[in-house]
């Protein structure tokens, strides 16, 4: 269902079925972009990113981007633009509440104006809240107070993800200097977004390292330190997760799912799937 909603406080929500390419545009506010089905391509400068239903993208105010549909089927997109004042009010209130919880308050102070524009995992609380919100909007809820309640919680969820993905993981890196840690983590997130985007391609370590502006050795060592898995393990998990989604929501034959998510051989896919989820892909599809 297509709609564009502008609330009285200037927060905006868009739900669209995209079938075409959009020209270069400039994001007017801080915004969070989800894809409910299909996938979308975003071009941010030289970076080509792909969003799938298990991940979301954030864009800061003023970022230039072009987007297009990347899947065979149309992409159902859902996005929220946050008005600057709403965002500022939220930040003040959140900072006030969580000052003691933050591992490195000085760092978030420094970064507070600009978020890391990258792909984040769309799971857990933010997923529940967005689905509830979308359900209300699809059913034509007009109650702006309720809608804003969800938007407020969406920011709470995003801050938590941000804190978990950036600061908690930066702490694990064995560099003495804080700003070095955050810079390395920013680059590791570039590696991660590359894996999120090209998960079904044959990715070489050299390519991945180049996208992250790190040497191969450096990338391998710090990736494992920060995320507890190697880039290869991360990629395999991501492929399995996306295969799981395809098995659940589409009718593509298993052999096709295998190649869609980038595995070369069905038997090794089945083995990995079974080890990971304790069920075979076929059984999973039958019970999903």
């Amino acid at each position: 269902m297509d709609y564009a909603l502008t609330l009285r406080n200037n927060n905006k929500i868009y739900s669209r079925i995209n079938t075409r390419q959009h020209d270069l545009q400039c994001s007017a506010d801080f915004n969070i972009r989800f894809v409910m089905s299909g996938s979308e391509n975003y071009q941010l400068g030289k970076r080509q990113l792909y969003i799938h239903p298990d991940s979301f993208l954030i864009l800061n105010k003023g970022t230039q981007y072009a987007s297009s549909v990347a899947s065979n089927d149309p992409a159902r997109s859902f996005s929220i633009n946050f008005d600057q004042k709403f965002l500022d009010d939220f930040k003040n209130c959140w900072m006030h509440k969580h000052e003691n919880l933050l591992s490195q308050p000085d760092l978030i102070q420094k970064q507070e104006r600009e978020f890391n524009e990258t792909i984040y995992p769309f799971k857990g609380d933010i997923r529940y809240n967005i689905f509830h919100l979308k359900h209300h909007l699809d059913n034509n809820t007009q109650d702006e107070l309720l809608i804003n309640e969800y938007l407020h919680h969406c920011l709470i969820n995003y801050y938590r993800i941000y804190n978990d993905e950036i600061f908690k993981k930066a702490e694990r890196l064995s560099f003495l200097n804080n700003s070095t840690r955050v810079e390395i983590l920013r680059r590791l997130n570039l590696a991660k977004e590359y894996l999120y985007s090209y998960y079904n391609k044959n990715i070489s370590l050299e390519e991945l390292a180049a996208h992250a502006c790190l040497s191969v050795n450096h990338l391998l060592r710090t990736f494992k330190q920060a995320f507890n898995v190697t880039p290869h393990q991360f990629l395999v998990q991501l492929r399995l997760q996306r295969a799981q989604l395809l098995l659940k929501t589409t009718r593509y034959p298993i052999n096709e799912v295998v190649s869609m998510v980038g595995f070369e051989c069905p038997s090794s896919f089945i083995r990995l799937f079974r080890t990971h989820y304790k069920v075979t892909p076929l059984k999973y599809r039958q019970t999903a």
Partner: peptide, 8 residues
């Protein structure tokens, strides 16, 4: 099934 909604 929707805490935010019922809370509101």
């Amino acid at each position: 099934d929707d805490c935010l909604n019922d809370h509101y």
